[in-house]
């Protein structure tokens, strides 16, 4: 675990990713102080271009885009991390349960996992969300959590199968430790980097999918979130009428959050699997070759 943290501190991708996410988190937390207007209130004329009064312009309804962006960060982050946590939790439990138990339990878990993987995710979410009516961010997070765990479960199960063979698991079994304890205390800590990658990946997925569902009209139009901003801007044909600030602002924010999370994810992946690395010692190697210290 400390090795992972030390690795992250030395990884350029991780640091840039951290910085981006930290920026968004701080902005989200400070929204009440930073936002110049009430995000829901009409504070100017419709579709005003950026000006000193409205730094990022106004929406079709005359709301301040900057204020909506700042408050919306809260929703996107909350759904992203909440749903990401749920997805990871379900996936990890299923994966460890299947991988460690083997036999009939594993068959059932694997079958379920493959089934969920093969039924397309977005259409399923659309049906669920449509029947639930206009889904609030919390409902979206819950649906995501219970429909998107399969990928994580598959990866975790594969890793559990190899950890299960290790001596410390065998010896814990010999000593008669209860099964839940072996899974929670002996196996789980050895899966941390897989779980970490799964978690960050799930957060990215949840952020993207929430925005997508809301953009497609399944969200609650009164909520303040980046997906709803996109939905309203698209409905108001913002691009066609030249109000690019209305639609590109949430685009930019979503891209930034996605990139920050992905950089972090790739960094964890590189630390868990050093062969994937691009920089570091290879840079030193090239320098030595150039200096004539050696060859291949």
């Amino acid at each position: 675990m400390t090795a992972l943290l030390r690795g992250l501190l030395h990884n350029r991708k991780a640091m840039v990713g951290f910085a981006l996410i930290a920026l968004i988190v701080i902005v989200a937390l400070a929204a009440p102080w930073l936002a110049p207007y009430d995000p829901g209130a009409r504070s100017g004329r419709p579709h005003q271009p950026p000006s000193l009064d409205h730094l990022l312009g106004t929406t079709r309804l005359g709301q301040d885009v900057l204020s909506r962006l700042l408050w919306g960060a809260r929703t996107s982050l909350a759904v992203g991390f909440g749903a990401g946590l749920l997805i990871t939790a379900v996936g990890t439990v299923m994966g460890i349960l299947g991988g460690y138990s083997g036999g009939r339990t594993d068959d059932v878990v694997s079958f379920l996992t493959n089934m969920v993987l093969v039924v397309p995710n977005l259409p399923l979410l659309l049906v669920l969300a449509a029947f639930l009516g206009q889904a609030s961010p919390i409902v979206i997070a819950l649906i995501l959590g219970f429909t998107s765990w399969a990928w994580g479960a598959r990866v975790t199960r594969a890793e559990t199968l190899s950890v299960r063979q290790k001596d410390f698991v065998k010896s814990a079994e010999m000593m008669g430790e209860p099964r839940w304890r072996i899974m929670a205390v002996e196996i789980f800590p050895n899966l941390l980097s897989i779980v970490g990658i799964n978690f960050i990946g799930s957060v990215v997925f949840a952020v993207i999918t929430e925005a997508t569902l809301e953009f497609l009209g399944l969200g609650d139009p009164r909520a303040v979130s980046w997906g709803i901003m996109l939905f309203n801007a698209q409905k108001a044909s913002a691009l066609a009428v030249g109000a690019w600030w209305d639609i590109l602002t949430p685009c930019f924010a979503l891209a930034l959050l996605g990139i920050g999370l992905s950089l972090l994810n790739f960094a964890v992946d590189e630390i868990a699997n050093p062969r994937l690395r691009t920089g570091g010692r290879l840079g030193r190697w090239s320098a030595l070759i150039k200096a004539g210290e050696g060859r291949l």
């Binding site: 290879l282 030193r284 190697w285 090239s286 030595l288 004539g292 210290e293 050696g294 060859r295 291949l296």
Partner: peptide, 14 residues
């Protein structure tokens, strides 16, 4: 057969 890949380095006196 010079099959090494980075980060292997054959020192110059070799």
């Amino acid at each position: 057969s010079r099959l090494h890949r980075p980060p292997a380095l054959i020192r110059r006196e070799s």
